[in-house]
């Protein structure tokens, strides 16, 4: 019923507008088309000026209303660079925005048609054109310079001693792997993947480096504050994207082509809770690349904590290899020669 009324009102409103429009055309013809054209010219010129003024007020109002909602200070070292670049660009473009928009609408208003004015024949002016080729070129060189400088800092090699974590996306969840005590990730092959037999990532159990790798799923990813972390990112099915809005980082997860990114978290989750005054605060991983019907819900969470807290958490974790061995043949799990039979089982 409500819908019906809305449609009825829309149709009615439209009919009325149309009748007025039609009538105004007849009136224009009656009063002399030239005269009513000039009148509407004045009205529109005035409205363009009003649009400029109200528009600029609107820009200010919008900023006042929304500036508090855009995430606050970045929580990583790279985030600081991203934000700095953003504000440099914002300052420059805002100046250009104001100058050009004001000129556009002010000229439109000022030079509206008038019987007293003759348009000025002004086909070109090489000097002017050179000025507004060179100034934008210089401005952009500055922006490119800063941009590329920061870009190489952010995408450069991760520092030695950075913690490494593997992040794997699949419809519609995130899984993680830590390299364990040896600091080396065991090899994987996607055809070894077997959820039912405890091998969701396709780890090759024959590779001893896999034996201490810690597999994490369905819970928070844990990172250490002020310790650089390098994420090795992959996907199983379609392209996903590890989006870390608070750290200002983002990288696609592409099946078949591992990608990496590194950054240093600078604030613990606890600190952020205090800073934002929101005790429900949590770092989130958002999937930023359209990945299917569950894309909206592909959410991961991160806890940033001190080294001690991290170590305590990690101490409670058991390598996936051990879990699988326990399940398959508890008695020989400790024996390294048991690798072959298990692999054989997994290969079936």
């Amino acid at each position: 019923m409500q819908t019906f009324f809305i449609v009825a009102i829309l149709v009615l409103g439209f009919l009325i507008t149309f009748q007025i429009a039609k009538a105004s055309e007849y009136v224009a013809v009656l009063r002399g088309e030239e005269r009513s054209r000039k009148q509407s010219n004045k009205i529109n010129a005035f409205m363009l000026l009003m649009f400029l003024i109200i528009g600029l007020i609107g820009v200010y109002y919008c900023n006042e209303k929304l500036k508090g909602k855009i995430l606050g200070a970045p929580a990583s070292d790279h985030g600081v660079l991203v934000d700095r670049m953003l504000y440099i660009t914002l300052a420059l473009t805002f100046v250009v925005f104001i100058i050009t928009q004001v000129a556009l609408f002010w000229f439109s208003f000022k030079y509206q048609e008038s019987d007293n004015r003759k348009a000025f024949y002004y086909p070109h002016n090489t000097k002017l054109e050179l000025i507004w080729t060179v100034i934008p070129a210089i401005t952009l060189t500055v922006l490119v310079g800063f941009g590329i400088f920061y870009w190489f800092k952010i995408t450069g090699k991760a520092p030695k001693g950075a913690m490494e974590v593997e992040v794997i996306g699949s419809q519609f969840k995130w899984e993680y792997r830590y390299p364990g005590k040896d600091g080396v990730f065991g090899k994987k092959y996607f055809k070894k993947t077997d959820e039912a037999k405890g091998n969701p990532l396709g780890q090759i159990w024959e590779d001893p480096a896999n034996h201490d790798d810690i597999y994490i799923a369905g819970e928070d990813l844990h990172l250490v504050v002020n310790k650089p972390v390098k994420l090795i990112i992959g996907a199983k099915d379609v392209i996903h994207d590890v989006g870390l809005a608070h750290f200002r980082m983002k990288m696609d997860a592409v099946p078949g082509i591992p990608t990496t990114m590194w950054f240093t978290p600078t604030k613990t989750t606890k600190q952020m809770k205090e800073e934002t005054g929101n005790d429900k605060f949590v770092y989130e991983i958002s999937c930023d690349q359209m990945c299917g019907k569950g894309h909206t819900g592909m959410r991961g969470t991160i806890v940033v904590e001190t080294q001690e807290e991290f170590d305590a958490w990690m101490a409670g974790k058991k390598p996936q290899y051990a879990t699988v061995m326990d399940a398959a043949k508890p008695a020989v799990a400790k024996d390294t020669t048991a690798v072959k039979p298990v692999a054989a089982v997994l290969n079936k």
Partner: peptide
């Protein structure tokens, strides 16, 4: 940018019919 500035200058000192 060149295009924008040229459009602006086209409007400048014109006799604009809206």
């Amino acid at each position: 940018a060149i295009k924008v500035f040229n459009w602006l200058t086209t409007l400048w000192r014109g006799n604009i019919r809206f």
